[in-house]
Design a binder for these strands. Structure first.
Lengths: 231, 231
DNA sequence: CGATTTTCTGACCATTCGGTCAGGATGCTT
DNA sequence: AAGCATCCTGACCGAATGGTCAGAAAATCG
């Protein structure tokens, strides 16, 4: 009925490997499981504090198998960081001076909020890396990301010159948005503890997003280009 | 000249134990040194990732001595958390509905910013604890801190009713302020990497504080009670 | 079916972990 | 000086760490 199974083997039910199973299905599933488990463990305990044993248990595989797939702890960690940076870069589409500041800033806040929402473990992993002095991400911070920030900053400045928003320091503004949105992933335990919730609902997230958008846009004196004098 | 010294002993210069040295001077110095070193190491690597060996080395003492003073890794960690909570509580003075919202919020932002500034390692230690799910601080979050937040929230609401500020959700506002200020300690590596600085100067911190105060107060429509109709 | 390649894992290794402890070093009191 | 209490630390312990590897188990191919 259950197909071939290695008799006594592990006490836990690996269950999944039903019948024949074509080509790399198991491989892909295992890799996905390992990456997910590793993201959780690294996020919770940091690089040094995470153990392959814990990752393997969460993935439901023997430790040796994790190493078979990933090669080394360091390699696994770097791979997770790279995956997270890809997700991050995906929402860093370019903008132009001609765009509407209100729309751009709202989209910025909203997409960043959703990144934290959709990948809370990844967000926390990133946070733990930065918290520890960003030993693996120095290059990225001082290169790619820095350029991206400065490009946006220049556009914000031009908007200010055209009177579309207050002349605030654009870099501090970007940090403000990053911190406010990142907070709901990284400090989730605090948010839940203080608000007495079990989890943040979609409605909560929407409410927070609206709140942040309103306060930050108003705080920077952003005036929608499409004449909306209803202050 | 240098007084009694245990001949060959450690290769590193423990140097400090000059002459006689009254009562508990060494004790106090060592404890301080250990706590400072532990704060650094725990902040950087989290609870699990920190090793007593690393703490001992940073403190310039043998590992056994650290355990002699602190009893256990867990005890040391808890003690650091408690110290940080005391610092935190120190700036949680009570406020009244009669106070001026602008003044209170600015003082709030400013004091929180200075806490991050003066105790960056402590701030990061706290962040790492929350990131890991706040295993040691659940009680504090769901009790003391929650009460404090809700007390303040009620006052913000009353201010809103009196037309002294916009009717924004006060809890989200508190989180906004916490995240924005905490950011400069926790994500210091990112801030420095992107801005290309070696460190944040006092002037930088003052500039950021002013920026945050202006944007957040304006964003919440805070109107100073002491008639200041200059928009 | 047998042969070969790929996938997997238990046993093992050196190192490090938090913690214990006997006993040496030091300081204080008399 | 002697006695005593406190302070300190090297040696050690069992457990856990990341990683290796020989060989079992499966999948693939002829």
């Amino acid at each position: 009925m259950t197909g071939p199974m290695t008799e006594g083997s592990a006490p836990a039910e690996r269950g999944a490997r039903e019948q024949g199973e074509a080509n790399g299905v198991t491989r892909r599933r295992n890799e996905r499981e390992i990456l997910a488990a590793a993201e959780r463990v690294f996020a919770r305990h940091g690089y040094r504090g995470a153990s392959l044993q814990a990752i393997a248990e969460q993935a439901g595989l023997p430790k040796s198998n994790v190493l078979y797939y990933m090669g080394s702890k360091r390699g696994l960690y770097v791979r997770l960081l790279e995956r997270m940076m890809e997700r991050w870069n995906a929402l860093l589409d370019d903008i132009s001076v001609e765009d509407d500041p209100a729309e751009v800033l709202e989209a910025f806040i909203r997409s960043k909020m959703q990144l934290s929402r959709r990948h809370p473990e990844g967000s926390r992993l990133f946070a733990a890396e930065i918290l520890g002095g960003a030993p693996f991400l120095q290059e990225y911070l001082r290169g790619e990301l820095r350029d991206w920030v400065q490009a946006r900053a220049r556009i914000f400045e031009q908007w200010a010159e055209r009177g579309l928003m207050d002349p605030v320091d654009p870099v501090w503004l970007i940090f403000l948005i990053w911190s406010a949105t990142q907070h709901y992933a990284d400090f989730e335990a605090q948010v839940l503890g203080i608000t007495g919730r079990d989890a943040l609902s979609d409605a909560d997230v929407e409410e927070i997003t609206t709140f942040l958008t309103r306060v930050i846009l108003k705080g920077c004196g952003v005036r929608s280009r499409d004449a909306d004098p209803a202050r």
